[in-house]
Design a protein around this nucleic acid. Sequence first.
DNA 1: CATCAGCCATAACCTATGTTAAGTGGGTGA
DNA 2: TCACCCACTTAACATAGGTTATGGCTGATG
Lengths: 250, 250
Amino acid sequence: MALLDTVVMRGLSSQGALSPEDKALLLGLELSPRQMSASEVLWLESADADLFCVVKEGWAYSYRNLKNGSKQILKFYLPGDIIGIRDFGFTRRLASAVMINEGVIYPFSYQQLFELFGRSNLAVGIMATAIRQQALLSERLIYLGKYAAHEQLAHFLYEIYLRLKRIGAVEDNSFLMPLTQELISDALGMSPVHVSRTFSMLREEGLVIRDRQHVQLPDPEALARLVEFNDSYIDEFLPPTFSELLRATP
Amino acid sequence: MALLDTVVMRGLSSQGALSPEDKALLLGLELSPRQMSASEVLWLESADADLFCVVKEGWAYSYRNLKNGSKQILKFYLPGDIIGIRDFGFTRRLASAVMINEGVIYPFSYQQLFELFGRSNLAVGIMATAIRQQALLSERLIYLGKYAAHEQLAHFLYEIYLRLKRIGAVEDNSFLMPLTQELISDALGMSPVHVSRTFSMLREEGLVIRDRQHVQLPDPEALARLVEFNDSYIDEFLPPTFSELLRATP
DNA sequence: CATCAGCCATAACCTATGTTAAGTGGGTGA
DNA sequence: TCACCCACTTAACATAGGTTATGGCTGATG
């Protein structure tokens, strides 16, 4: 019911995309509501991820604790929204989630979603919903930024380093980065001049050696510590439960 | 081939999640490579969205032009990445995409993805890949922020307004927002004091009237203009082509 | 070999926003 | 009714980062 509400609200069924069987499947899900009090925690960062929640009443939000003691809220959830899609595909929660005021949610497990998948075109609709949600998040996050410039740049370089390493494009802690400082400034939301200043800082601290497109990170771990890099989202392997679920679903 | 490379690289098949049929399906896709030159445009913002691109060689990036004339880069794409997943589920491109240096890409259409869906567990793997990518984007964007405080807050309020309107929770341009200024400050990455200052500014300009949790936007359109709100991502209805494709796929 | 155009470094100065602090007002409980 | 607390407001001051400007490389081109 709750899920159907949500999907219908998003306009999926109104265009005939859902067959009667699809609808029956959704209706048969039998989600049971759960009353939540204000400030109640849905889950904390790095907890096991195994379910979503449809918000029926009340507001909630997801957030990450930052190393400077503050927190960054990623998204506010309003009635009809689904919390936890961001973590689908990961073993652990990437962010904490908490109620703002009291409300009602409908939890449903990843397992239940898997049963929907593979049987119908619902997969497509749900995937689209998920991606919309992420797009919205991104849109919001474009306006954000709480870290100092040298932390941003260090984080950026370390991410590139990890991604290149995965595809075997790092040798001896060095790699090729075909980006101008102007491009980097557009990515990090700071001025090109400040990117230059910040590179100089990192160089003086011995964290980054750079000559044109050649970048070397003499001590990647030091960089990682500086930015407290959360590499769980880089590790691209599916959690073990996925393989089991995939085999279990005919 | 290219797609299989990408999926394998992401660790999907290494755990037995892909059946031989799945692999054959991927191999049968017959993607044809396309040579790209440096700075070549893949697509521009708001162009029709109908295909993805797997990057085989070279770097690319996606970006949005901002109203102040600068641009915000959303993501850099490295070999093995898929460009265009963000737009899946939308009619138009949400961001432009362009090559950085020369390289090779494999385009494949949404239609081809639909053919993969509904037949196999691939749906799950691909969805997971998509979501990972978005998670990565989010992670990166946490470090961003290029707009002034009053634009951020105006954008934030207008987004909440639109989302509440969709679920019928706006009346007479007023709505209930159970957020403290401290929560808002954590969401926007600015200090609570500055949130207050900025609310005062918006009030003086007649854009926002607020009393505790009651918020009124006397002239929502004026707010929208101030932030040049891109509401294509709020409009949650599937593009017409989706319905066709869904009906066409048995 | 000379020239030119990008790209980058550094400096001086300016502004938006953070920080600290003090004060106001409404809601709630004794 | 009083007192307290919490959310908010406003002000004064500090600073990270933006802006503008200048000059030095380096690699491409003729």
